[in-house]
Each structure stands twice: as C-alpha cells, then as structure tokens.
C-alpha cells in the first residue's frame, strides 16, 4: 500500500551555459512512493512555484523510458540505482523515508549545461549525421522479403538499435566517451545486409566525428552499467574492428565484403 516519503534533495541549479552553478537544498515532503522520480520533481516544482521560486528545469518527455530525453545523475549514478532503467522509470518506492538525494546534470565537455539539469546533447546527432543511416532514397526499395536476414542477425541488430540516445553512457564514462552510443548505431546498421555498401565509410565517418567531441574508451565498462537499455560492450569491440578494417581496406573492394 502506498506510503509517503520525506526527502532532502540537493539539486544542481545553474542559470545558463555560462553562469556558475551550485547545489541547492530542497525538502521534498509527502512524496507518494508510487510516484516516479520525475513526478517527485514535479511536486517539488509545484512547491517552488507556490513559494515564488523558479522551478527546476529537468529533461523529460515520454516518461516511458523510450524517448531518451530524461537523464540525470542521481546519487552519483546515471539514471539512478536501478539497472536498465531510465530516470523516468525509476520510482520513489526504491528510496527510503529521510533519504538525501543528490541530483546533478550529465557532465562532459561536449554536453554543456543549458540550464539546471538540462544539458545540450546535440553532438550525438552530429555522430548520426556523419553516417548513421542507410542511403536508400524513398521509392527505391525492392520488396522487403527479397533480402533475407537470419533471425539471429536481425535480433542482434535490434539489440543495438534499442539505444535511446539518452547520453547516460557518456555521463557515466570516466573519459566522457561516446563509444557505446556510436558503436550501437554502427552495429545496428553494419550487421544488416542493407548496411553493407556503406559499412566502412560509415564507420570511419562516425568514429572520427565522435572523436571530435568525446573522449577515448579505456574499457571501464561504466557505460554498460548506466545504459537503460543494457546495450552490450561487445559493440565497442566490433566498432574498433570495423574501424581498423575501414582504414586498411581498399574502398572499392570494401563495399563488396561483409
């Protein structure tokens, strides 16, 4: 049965990208334990507005764990303590009455704070823009069943494609590396027949764009622990392999091999 919690929040407040930020302490009172973490913030915000203080800006949208908008550091963990769970799917029953919760935005040089807990993750779009697609203009496609894909391959590709682009991997990484994000998209496309013609060009372009913004992988594995979709680290290895191949292979031949 539903209970209520009284919590102490330490929330990062920052006016804008160039402003200095600091932690502010708030009391969150009478939070139903059925509430989600974001609903808890809603309640705190209503309270702040009532008291004439500007509400906390935090990233959120679908609240179903699929859009990838939400994401904050909760007590030093990206998306909080529940494994494989985005912030919006974290519920207050996982906390205890009297807890202190520290909430901080994602941190990385490539993710400047926009305001409070909201950061700018546009470099992730830049990585997709660099090559995270299959060039197949509308109308050119042959019948979908003309290309058979082994079920296992389609499943593996889907495992990678499940990435929601929230940036938790970058936030959790001690190097602010985006390897898990980039490699997931690469494996999604590189493991499918449709992705073969552009495989090595794509790998090269996406990896090099990634490196313009993010750090390098030192194989800690924090990204996997933080990932709300539990994307596997294997994809990073596959990306490394494809990248080396992309540099070694003759382009004219590369497209003909998988």
């Amino acid at each position: 049965m539903s209970q209520t919690l009284n919590l102490t929040l330490k929330v990062w407040r920052q006016e804008g990208p160039d402003a200095d930020g600091s932690f502010e302490t708030y009391k969150a009172k009478n939070i139903p334990d059925d509430a989600s973490f974001l609903e808890m913030l809603d309640v705190v915000n209503e309270d702040l507005i009532d008291n004439g203080r500007t509400p906390i800006e935090f990233p959120h949208d679908c609240r179903e764990g699929i859009c990838g908008t939400c994401g904050v550091m909760i007590n030093g963990r990206a998306h909080g303590q529940e494994k494989g769970t985005a912030t919006c799917q974290l519920h207050m029953r996982k906390f205890s009455d009297g807890d202190t919760i520290v909430i901080e935005p994602w941190r990385a040089a490539a993710f400047p704070v926009v305001k409070d807990l909201v950061v700018d993750r546009s470099p992730l779009d830049k990585i997709i823009e660099a090559g995270g697609y299959v060039t197949a203009p509308t109308g050119t496609a042959a019948d979908a069943n003309d290309t058979r894909i082994p079920k296992e391959a389609a499943d593996s590709s889907m495992d990678a494609a499940a990435c929601i682009g929230c940036g938790a991997c970058v936030a959790a990484c001690p190097n602010s590396a985006a390897q898990l994000f980039t490699s997931a998209k690469l494996w999604h496309l590189n493991s499918l027949p449709q992705g073969q013609p552009e495989r090595y060009k794509r790998t090269e372009a996406m990896v090099e764009t990634m490196e313009q913004f993010f750090g390098a992988c030192t194989n800690h594995g924090e990204c996997y622990e933080a990932c709300p979709k539990e994307i596997t680290l294997d994809f990073i290895g596959y990306m490394n392999r494809d990248y080396i191949k992309s540099k070694v292979k003759n382009r004219k031949l590369a497209g003909q091999q998988s």
Binding site: K10, W12, F23, M73, N75, G76, R77, V102, E104, R107, A108, A109, A110, A171, A172, P174, N175, S176, A177, F213, F214, G215, H220, G221, E222, Y224, E225, A226
Partner: peptide, 15 residues
C-alpha cells in the same frame, strides 16, 4: 579535455 566535472561523488559500478 573531453572532461567531466561532477561536483558530487560518483558511484563506480564497473570500473
């Protein structure tokens, strides 16, 4: 340079 600057203590899970 790609750096991070968490003000709160990070809870390491895998490293």
């Amino acid at each position: 340079a790609s750096g991070r600057s968490y003000e709160s203590k990070q809870d390491w899970l895998a490293s």
